[in-house]
């Protein structure tokens, strides 16, 4: 499980997760993910295009940090690209109704900034 980030502008950050977001994978990135995505009032695009497995514990991590970011007047969106498995899991659990979901990166950036 790996986590990388890029500050596109002063307020817009992209956080890319790669690997299996299962129990061990989520434990491995949890502290760093919170530090990158929820501790500042930023607009954050979480890139899940390289996620090979998304479990409920990983979704819980997304929700927890999206809520924390919103409470700091920030905003999180999710970019899935053509990762159909991840998109299906997020839709099955109704998370796409809580955190905006995008298949296009430019649209995800715009969605985060809106």
């Amino acid at each position: 499980m790996t986590i990388e980030y890029e500050d596109v502008t002063d307020v817009l950050r992209r956080v890319r997760l790669s690997g299996r977001l299962d129990v061990p994978g989520t434990q491995a990135i949890s502290i760093k993910f919170t530090g990158l995505s929820a501790t500042q009032a930023k607009r954050v695009v979480v890139d899940l295009t390289e996620i090979t497995f998304l479990g409920s514990v990983g979704i819980r991590e997304l929700i927890t940090n999206a809520k924390a970011l919103q409470q700091r007047t920030g905003k999180m969106v999710i970019f899935v690209g053509n990762n159909a498995m991840v998109a299906k899991t997020l839709e099955t659990t109704g998370i796409d109704a809580l955190i905006p979901l995008f298949t296009d990166l430019d649209e995800a950036d715009k969605g985060a900034m809106s």
Binding site: I63, K67, Q70, L98
Partner: peptide, 21 residues
């Protein structure tokens, strides 16, 4: 039941939904 907003969302309970789906 599914939360209507992010502010109302509570952690937990998704595993059973994913299992059944």
């Amino acid at each position: 039941p599914a939360a209507g907003t992010l502010a109302d969302a509570q952690p937990g309970g998704l595993g059973v939904i994913m299992l059944r789906a």
